[in-house]
Amino acid sequence: MSTLHTVNKSPFERNSLSSCLGHCKPGDAVLLIEDAVVGARKGGSFAGRLAEAGKQCSMYALGPDLAARGLKPEDMDACVQVVDYGGFVDLAAEHARTQAWL
């Protein structure tokens, strides 16, 4: 009965990611979309928190949102898997509920 959390705000601008990670349960998935993808860059100040949370939850970023911002999958922290829109649908189907962190 796990949850897919989506986050769409940059963690440098809002606390959505931080709040999301503070309410995640083991086995949940976190998908970074829209501006949130900028938080997952290797060496960024949120990479450590994502890696820590990634020990209990799985971390994803939406590929088209990375590409739109000039970010490459290999620029992302190792804890983050890049998915396409089909992968987004799969994640939504695999979890009991979806919670948006706006």
């Binding site: 949850t3 309410h23 995640c24 349960k25 509920r97 979806t98 919670q99 948006a100």
Partner: peptide, 11 residues
């Protein structure tokens, strides 16, 4: 709060 969220059908 995390437990309350995890017990919902729709959020």
């Amino acid at each position: 709060m995390a437990d309350i969220m995890a017990s919902q059908d729709v959020i």
